[in-house]
């Protein structure tokens, strides 16, 4: 009896932290998204779905309410970029994690440490480093010109490619670590068995190693995809701020746009998208477990 009581109130601090730092803020964002906007920013409590309607319908230049694809376009672009980043991260993380897992025992901690090393430096500094690398007369351009390969490659900075490089670079450690964890647990005898059965290296990688490391890839995909949806720095600093992502759109609405409820409505939409993604992922994992 006592033990059961302890189980209840022993968890109270955890519940309190969850309620205060997770549920309460989300609740506030939800309420703000249903409020009416204040004339100069801020908001008045209320119950209105105007902000959600605005995502789809807005007055055009002639003052007629019309379907506006612009916010859907921004949402779609964000999802596309996050997906692309996740795929590239997975493609790069698999061989990297495999190499680390195969490394001699005393090297492993060092290699893992190297993967986490960038996290010791502020995100802004790391993104700025890419400005120096990609910029006009930057490291890449200088190197290529030094080798006599090109004379003028034009600007690499302020392109969608630069933004993608920045996103992949920022989030790839979050993919490598879980993939490494699942590959390391992989039973070496399975690989041997595959070779014994005349499986080539490629077939072994595709039919044995890849499926067994999939749980790690899925965990990594969540860790990469979700923060990508809210990325603000890379689009501005590397992408040149020429096209908005959801993070920038939300920022604009709370800042210059002075429309907090609309900003909150987009934030809620983003949150719902993330939740759908996580739920699909969990569903897949459960199905996989059932089949396995």
């Amino acid at each position: 009896m006592r033990l059961r009581d302890f189980r209840l109130w022993g968890l109270a601090p955890a519940w309190a932290i969850m309620a205060l730092t997770l549920i309460l803020p989300i609740g506030i964002v939800l309420l703000v998204s249903l409020a009416t906007r204040g004339a100069y920013g801020g908001f008045d409590w209320g119950l209105s779905f105007d902000s959600y309607a605005k995502i789809l319908f807005e007055e055009d230049w002639d003052g007629n309410l019309a379907f506006t694809p612009q916010y859907l376009l921004i949402i779609g672009r964000t999802l596309w970029l996050a997906t692309l980043t996740t795929l590239i991260c997975a493609a790069l993380a698999l061989p990297a994690a495999y190499t680390i897992a195969q490394a001699p025992g005393r090297w492993k901690p060092v290699l893992i440490y190297l993967v986490t090393l960038p996290f010791w430096v502020s995100m802004i500094v790391r993104v700025y480093a890419w400005i120096i690398i990609l910029g006009n007369d930057g490291v890449i351009e200088k190197t290529l010109r030094g080798l006599g390969l090109v004379t003028d490659i034009g600007s690499l900075l302020f392109t969608d490619g630069a933004m993608l490089v920045g996103l992949v670079y920022s989030y790839i450690p979050l993919m490598i670590l879980p993939v490494f964890a699942s590959i390391e647990k992989l039973d070496g005898s399975l690989i041997e068995a595959s070779h014994d059965l005349y499986g080539s290296r490629w077939v072994t990688a595709r039919r044995v190693i890849l499926p067994l490391s999939l749980p790690g890839v899925m965990a990594g995909a969540v860790l990469v995809f979700v923060p990508c949806l809210g990325a603000v720095l890379e689009p501005i600093l590397l992408g040149g701020g020429k096209t908005m992502l959801m993070g920038n759109l939300i920022q604009t609405q709370f800042g210059g746009g002075r429309n907090w409820p609309f900003g909150a409505a987009i934030a809620v939409t983003l949150m719902v998208l993330v939740m759908i993604f996580l739920m699909l992922n969990a569903l897949r994992a459960r199905k996989g477990a059932a089949h396995g």
Partner: peptide, 20 residues
């Protein structure tokens, strides 16, 4: 100058459409 909400909405509209 300090814009009215109506004017500010037009400013935001210009900006969002520009960067959509």
């Amino acid at each position: 100058r300090s814009c009215s909400p109506a004017a500010q909405d037009l400013v935001t509209k210009v900006w969002t459409q520009l960067l959509q």
